[in-house]
Simulated assay, not measured.
Amino acid sequence: MDGGGPEHPTWHWLWDLYMTAMCGVTIGGVLLLDDSVPGRSPAGAVAALVAMLVWLTVVGRRVPRLGGLGPRPLGYVLVAVALWCVAMWCAPAAVAAIPALFPVVFSTLPLGAAIGAAVTIAVLPLGLVLADSGASSRYLTIALAVALMGLVTGPILGIFIVNSVRQRMALALLVDELRDSRAETSRLSREAGVAAERERLAGEIHDTLAQGFTSIVALTQAIEAEMGTDPEAAARHLALIESTARENLTEARTMVTRLTPTALDGATLPAAIRRLCLAFEAETGISVRDRIAEGTPSAGMAGDVVLLRAAQEALANIRQHAGAGSVAVTLDSDTDAVRLTVSDNGIGLTEPHTDGFGLRGMRSRVAQVGGTVTLSAGAAERGLRLDVEVPT
């Protein structure tokens, strides 16, 4: 019998098979040996053995295993032993069912009580013979042999059964713990995946859609000032608003369907960054000097995306915070890395400085591809310089 815990055993089909076989063999012995070992009522013995089989296989399913000495396990054992005694009283050959009782007591009662019950069961046939016919009974030698065999084999078999049941219980508990642990690991993995995807999408939205909307807001404010004074500039800025909105829409659709940024769709990283510089200059009026090497090798799709997003974030920060009049963007490489440098002549960093969401996201993305991010003062200690290096 498997142990699913002392109060909830998991029934094993071998228990039913063993009990059925032992009771069946004993019933056969009672009927076949009736001539040589006559009894008071072979039919009564058969009925008692059938009742014992039903009791052991049906009622036993809800009996606690290796628990305390409570009324349920104690009553279960006493009824089984009583039915066996009735069978032996009706036909002495029913003593053959004794091997069915040792597993019952040792799988149900605590070890000390089980040993006491096993000793009692072993000497019961001898006691019944003496009570029935006294020391002159012709069955005395057989009863004595059964008692001695039971006294020797009962405790040994019982201890083996107890250890087996305890091992099964421990194994069942371990399986339950492993199942719970696997479920918890799966839950944590899903949560970590959700958190990572949420962070990725937040970074994508910040670097694309949010910056596009910021450009639209800035251009709208410029148009408000130019409507009455410079209609041509207002028209140019209106066209830029339309272009930026279309790019945002395309970026949003791309974000839904795949991971490659629209700017890199069918284009090299140098070309994408050059277009980014041209758009920035047109929208802000800030002069951009780009030194972008056309032969810059790809850092792989992940590395190229990281460098493009870093350039977008750097230019967005310059637009919003730097107060700069000019910007320099450099993209070059050596044998094992691609470097992006964005510098401006604005106000630089204020002290104390704490990275915002954009810079934290940039550092995280660059670290994921094994790169580095460095912030330092610009030329002549003016403005800010951002260096991003990604291995190829």
Rank of each mutant, 00 (worst) to 15 (best):
D344W: 02
M1P: 03
P6R: 03
E313D: 07
T374C: 08
R382K: 11
W15T: 12
S181R: 14
C85S: 12
R339V: 09
A47F: 06
F280G: 00
E351Y: 08
E381F: 07
I241E: 02
E313K: 06
H12P: 05
L201C: 09
L308H: 04
P103T: 06
L315N: 03
A379W: 08
A82T: 10
T220M: 11
V30Y: 00
A337G: 07
V54E: 03
R258P: 07
R289M: 14
A114K: 00
C23K: 01
E381R: 13
S186E: 10
G303C: 11
L240T: 03
R200W: 07
I156E: 02
V146A: 03
T350R: 10
V86L: 08
L69Y: 09
L375A: 06
L74G: 01
G212W: 00
E184M: 07
V366L: 01
A21K: 07
I347N: 04
R309E: 12
P270N: 07
A170D: 10
E177S: 12
E177P: 03
M301R: 15
A117C: 12
V366M: 01
V305F: 00
A233Q: 06
E247N: 14
R190W: 10
L56P: 00
F280Y: 12
A322R: 05
M255L: 15
T392F: 06
P92Y: 06
I161D: 02
G378W: 02
E232L: 07
P73Q: 08
G150M: 02
D132F: 10
V165I: 12
R258Q: 14
L219Y: 01
A379P: 15
A235I: 13
T220H: 08
R200T: 14
T229E: 15
A234V: 06
V50S: 08
Q167G: 15
D336M: 07
V46L: 03
P155R: 05
L209M: 11
A93M: 12
A135R: 15
A267R: 13
R258T: 13
A380Q: 14
S181E: 14
V30T: 04
I159Y: 05
N317W: 03
T268S: 15
A113F: 08
Q221K: 13
T120C: 10
P297E: 07
T257A: 15
T335D: 14
S376F: 01
G266K: 11
A118L: 04
D207N: 14
R166L: 13
R363I: 04
R246F: 09
P103L: 09
M169E: 13
A47S: 09
T208L: 07
T57D: 14
R253N: 08
A45E: 05
I161M: 13
L101R: 00
R166H: 13
C23F: 11
T392I: 13
M255W: 06
A97D: 05
H321G: 03
E191F: 05
Q312M: 06
